[in-house]
C-alpha cells in the first residue's frame, strides 16, 4: 500500500469512520511497522492518560522485608562463600592459565641446554660427596648414636668410594660399641660383591672378639660361599676364647662352605 493510501486510512480511523475491514488492514500495517501507534490520535491520547496514572509505591514494610531477606542471603553467602563463577568469567581465566602452562612447558623444552644434564649429575655428585664427608666426620664422634647415624648414611649413597668402605672396615674392626660394629657389618653387605670388600671381611674375622659379630660374619661367609674364609673361621673354632654355642654354629657354616 502506498504512503498516501496509508495516510488516508489513518485519517479515516482518526475521524472514527473506519469500518472493520479497514481496521483489519490497519492492524496489518501496524504489525508490519508501516503505521505507528502514535499516529492514531485518540488511542495515543488515551495511552498518554493511562501512562500518567500513578499506581503509588509499595509500603515501607515491603522495603523492610526486602532488606531483611537480602541481609539473610548475605549472611548465608559469608557462611559458605564458594560459588561457581559464571562461564563468562571462568572461560578467559582458564584460557589464560592453560596458555601460561603450555608456554611454560614449551619454554622449558626449548631453553633446556645440554649443559643442564651435566649440571644435574655434577650436583648429584656434590650431594654424594657431602654425605660422604658428613659420614666420615660423624664416625669420629664420641657418641655411639652419632657413629650409628654415620654408618646408616651409607644406605642413602648409591656408589661409595674406597674411603667409605675403608672407614666402615675401620669401624667394624675397632669401634668400641658392638652395635656400631654390627651396623658397620650390615652396611658392608651390599658391597660384598667387590673383591676388596670380601677380603676385608675375611681379614676382619680374626680381629672380632664379640661372639655376635663372629656369628654374623660366619653366616655371611656361608651366604656368600666364600671358601677363603674357612681357615679364618677354623681359627675361631680352635680358639679357647670362643663360646661353645658359637663354635657349634660356626662349624655349621664351615660345613656349608666345604
Amino acid at each position: 500500500m502506498d504512503k498516501n493510501k496509508i495516510e488516508e486510512l489513518v485519517a479515516k480511523y482518526n475521524e472514527g469512520l473506519a469500518d472493520p475491514a479497514e481496521i483489519f488492514t490497519l492492524e496489518q500495517l501496524i504489525e508490519e511497522g508501516q503505521v505507528d501507534l502514535t499516529q492514531l490520535r485518540e488511542l495515543k491520547a488515551l495511552d498518554d492518560r493511562m501512562v500518567a496514572v500513578d499506581h503509588g509505591s509499595p509500603s515501607l514494610s515491603t522495603d523492610d522485608q526486602f532488606y531483611a531477606m537480602l541481609a539473610s542471603e548475605k549472611k548465608k553467602q559469608v557462611g559458605f562463600s564458594f560459588q561457581w563463577p559464571s562461564w563468562n568469567i571462568l572461560a578467559p581465566r582458564l584460557a589464560l592459565a592453560s596458555l601460561t602452562l603450555i608456554l611454560g612447558f614449551a619454554a622449558g623444552f626449548w631453553l633446556k641446554s645440554p649443559n643442564q644434564v651435566s649440571e644435574v649429575s655434577a650436583l648429584t655428585q656434590e650431594v654424594s660427596d657431602l654425605k660422604e664427608m658428613m659420614m666420615l666426620s660423624l664416625l669420629e664422634k664420641e657418641s655411639a648414636s652419632d657413629r650409628l647415624r654415620a654408618v646408616s648414611l651409607t644406605g642413602e649413597m648409591g656408589n661409595v668410594s674406597a674411603n667409605v668402605t675403608d672407614a666402615l672396615f675401620k669401624t667394624l674392626n675397632n669401634d668400641p660399641s658392638v652395635n656400631v660394629r654390627l651396623a658397620a657389618l650390615e652396611a658392608l653387605v651390599p658391597f660384598a660383591s667387590q673383591g676388596s670388600v670380601r677380603e676385608g671381611l675375611i681379614r676382619s674375622i680374626a680381629s672380632q672378639d664379640s661372639p655376635i659379630i663372629q656369628l654374623n660374619l660366619a653366616e655371611l661367609m656361608a651366604a656368600l660361599q666364600e671358601k677363603k674364609s674357612v681357615s679364618e673361621l677354623q681359627k675361631l673354632v680352635d680358639s679357647n676364647q670362643t663360646p661353645r654355642e658359637i663354635k657349634e654354629k660356626i662349624k655349621k657354616s664351615i660345613e656349608v662352605l666345604i
Binding site: 500513578d54 503509588g56 509505591s57 562463600s81 560459588q83 563463577p85
Partner: peptide, 26 residues
C-alpha cells in the same frame, strides 16, 4: 549481583520497586 555483589540488588530494588508495584496493582 549474579557474581556475588548482593548490595547491588538493593539499588535495583530502589529503582524498580515502583514500576513493579504499579504493574501488580494495575
Amino acid at each position: 549481583v549474579r557474581d556475588g555483589d548482593l548490595d547491588k540488588l538493593g539499588l535495583l530494588f530502589e529503582r524498580y520497586k515502583r514500576p513493579l508495584y504499579g504493574f501488580f496493582y494495575g
